[in-house]
Design a protein around this nucleic acid. Structure first.
Lengths: 223, 223
DNA sequence: GTTACCAAAATTGGCGCCAATTTAGGATAC
DNA sequence: GTATCCTAAATTGGCGCCAATTTTGGTAAC
């Protein structure tokens, strides 16, 4: 039982086509509205027709692309209303467990979060769009994981993907990205200070991307 | 608005195989742990191999069945921990919008809810397991819809399915079903009385299936 | 010049076959 | 009598072909 077979990525292909397409949608390589022709994808990702169709079917189940019978699949255009509703759901879920996150936070987990926040900062400059996006995901996953509900982490990850092209369009300005980075550190500060109310406010402002994340006293004390 | 066109099932086949399998899992025809052999499903639902495989792939994406490479698919066994976590998420989401539901409730929507609650009561006696299950779903959909967030309705529907075999096992006793029915009416009462706190308590007790749904004064007043 | 119709090219989508892997049963050796 | 190995049956899963539908471009008629 040498246990070596699970991580033998041949060269680059190994990964599922679904993830490849998903990444290209999330990073904006395939913008909203694009028609995803099966032949093009076949050549682009060097895979077979059934693989392409499985990927498209999965993505349409996730509501990332829309399927029009006998016409094909195109990248979903998230309208304003739906995006708003998804934000509302995220705010409800992530603020609801703020007290649990504070409760379960340990010095080790806080250190891990600081590391992830710093990794996000680094990727702002040095990383690709995808690496940056994934660094953000990793931070929020770790933060949510503190609530102790692994299923919740999955649900939030799923609904977060539904805003799809949002990351690219929302992060186009450097100012916006830098504020996101600062907010990450402020959230950790609030967590360390056990300031539940402040943490909730920060999470809501971070998701809504509104500026009014007035830091509480305890959060300021940390800085 | 004759509203008749949506129910034109040609004979029985018309609908997607995925839904057929889903129903059989939810109603307990295919119990947790069952291995879903492709040939069997092919014959059972009178469809082709690719259709079966697409259905199985979709259901495994929804985490209703588990896929073991080169072994096949089997109905997922929802362990206690996961079921608990899913309940927690539902409680968070559905109680969080209780105030919105009260705010948006109109005499018409309340009347519609009463009708759906009564339909559930009727299906307890006269309906099949599936009809009963769907009557429950319809009631909760209509109730959640009051919050004005259609995306939320979808998300809750999705995560509700993840408890899969739960409906059958939880509703095996008549006492349990009857209490569910009563709780439906109590929720409408609380809604009509604009008793947000009472509604939240009822929703939580209903989801958790705990007995302590002590009715508030305003809810009692209605009865 | 514009519109309508027809035909050809392209694209989607259904279906079945065959290779690879696994499982079960039987036979043989200990 | 039991355990192990080998063979055969069954099941999964990858792949390609062909029919059905749509789109586009051209032509002809008004």
């Amino acid at each position: 039982m040498t246990q070596m077979q699970s991580v033998t990525y041949t060269s680059a292909k190994e990964r599922d086509v679904t993830d490849l397409v998903l990444e290209d949608i999330l990073t904006g390589v395939l913008p909203a509205g694009t028609w995803l022709k099966q032949i093009d994808l076949e050549k682009r990702y060097d895979c077979t027709r059934p693989e392409v169709r499985r990927a498209l079917d999965r993505l349409s189940q996730k509501r990332l692309v829309e399927h029009v019978p006998n016409r094909g699949y195109h990248v979903y255009q998230p309208e304003g209303r739906r995006a708003q509703e998804i934000s509302d759901i995220r705010v409800i879920l992530e603020t609801a467990v703020a007290d649990l996150m504070v409760e379960n936070a340990t010095p080790e987990s806080i250190a891990r979060l600081r590391q992830l926040a710093q990794h996000f900062d680094r990727m702002t400059m040095e990383g690709t769009v995808l690496e940056h996006y994934e660094a953000n995901l990793a931070f929020h996953r770790e933060l949510l994981l503190l609530a102790g509900n692994t299923e919740l982490v999955e649900v939030v990850s799923e609904i977060r993907q539904r805003t799809s092209s949002a990351p690219v369009s929302q992060w186009r300005t450097r100012a916006r990205v830098e504020r996101s980075a600062r907010e990450h550190h402020m959230m950790i500060d609030a967590l360390e200070a056990r300031d539940v109310a402040g943490l909730k406010r920060l999470i809501e402002a971070h998701i809504r991307q509104t500026g009014d994340a007035a830091p509480t006293e305890s959060a300021v004390r940390q800085a």
